[in-house]
């Protein structure tokens, strides 16, 4: 029994990581039709900024309140980079979908290489508070605290995002824009401001994933974002593009499936099952669990 609880909670931790990356991707795709390959870069920026801040920023550190400051700095850096990318690179190519994808592909190649050039290709030990290395006993299972931290963070982000989308004016514009962008534009609302906002939110969530993922894995390396990104893509497609709630459901399904199959089957089999799930969902319900039809 304790094994099942442990697997469930670690699976949920993984799901939390996927959700943090996928929610931003999904919103950006739903609203602006941009398949953002540079999203992994935002994650890398967040992780490295947190790592840098913990060592160099006054007031920040690897424990207690200093760690919160470091993570906040990382999230801010991720959001800032995302906004810059949107304003400088994506906006001039407005409504030219293929070119936007190409630019984000180039950006992901160049950006990861830049991280590698600055801090080296090897993984670096991540500064983390001592309590995240310990375990908490829940119903007889020893669950790593870092995983619990991820779950709590993801639930908070999910709640915050839903509240933002539901109760604010900009949230309304974003929801309407995902549904029908032309109509929103026709009503005289500048959707492009919402694009920038969505990029900032996505960048911040991805940077948070990078920082907390660093705590979870214990190290930070330039290629980390890329490997997470593919599973985040799968989560986005399964969940339905443009739907935050769909991403959450899909992330939980993918994380649990992966964790359980990898434990009870051969290692690596879980990853294959996830792709199998993707194929089944696409064949039976091409628009994903929730969301609009996934076309170009």
């Amino acid at each position: 029994m304790s094994t099942v609880i442990l697997l469930t909670l670690t699976g949920l931790g993984l799901a939390a990581l996927y959700f943090l990356v996928a929610s931003g991707l999904s919103l950006v795709f739903g609203l602006a039709d941009v398949l953002n390959f540079a999203h992994g870069l935002f994650l890398g920026v967040g992780a490295y900024a947190t790592w840098w801040a913990a060592g160099n920023l006054p007031g920040a550190g690897s424990g207690g309140f200093g760690f919160v400051v470091a993570v906040a700095f990382g999230v801010l850096a991720g959001a800032l980079v995302a906004v810059l990318v949107e304003l400088v690179l994506i906006r001039p190519l407005y409504s030219r979908t293929i070119e936007q994808v190409l630019v984000t592909v180039g950006l992901s190649l160049a950006g990861v290489a830049l991280l590698q050039a600055t801090w080296g290709a090897d993984a670096r030990p991540f500064p983390r508070p001592a309590w995240t290395r310990e375990v908490t006993s829940i119903l007889g299972a020893n669950v790593p605290n870092a995983g619990l931290l991820l779950i709590i963070a993801a639930v908070l982000v999910l709640g915050g995002l839903l509240a933002f989308l539901r109760f604010t004016r900009y949230g309304l514009i974003i929801r309407a824009g995902v549904e029908n962008r032309e109509m929103v534009t026709a009503l005289g609302i500048d959707v492009r401001k919402a694009f920038t906002l969505v990029f900032a939110i996505g960048g911040a969530a991805a940077a948070l994933a990078g920082a907390l993922g660093g705590v979870y894995f214990g190290t930070v390396s330039p290629g980390q974002g890329g490997s997470l990104l593919i599973f985040a893509f799968i989560v986005v497609v399964i969940g339905g593009m443009g739907s935050v709630v769909g991403s959450a459901y899909a992330a939980v399904a993918v994380g649990l499936l992966q964790q359980f199959v990898n434990y009870y089957g051969t290692s690596g089999l879980g990853d294959l099952c996830v792709v199998g799930l993707l194929a089944v969902v696409l064949l039976l319900r091409p628009q994903g669990l929730a969301g609009k039809v996934a076309t170009a």
Partner: peptide
Amino acid sequence: RTVGIAFAMVTLAFAQVGAILVA
């Protein structure tokens, strides 16, 4: 059976299976 961006993602996922199988 899918088109556009969804097609890109499905092919990406299939290729990822190959990468996992090899690794």
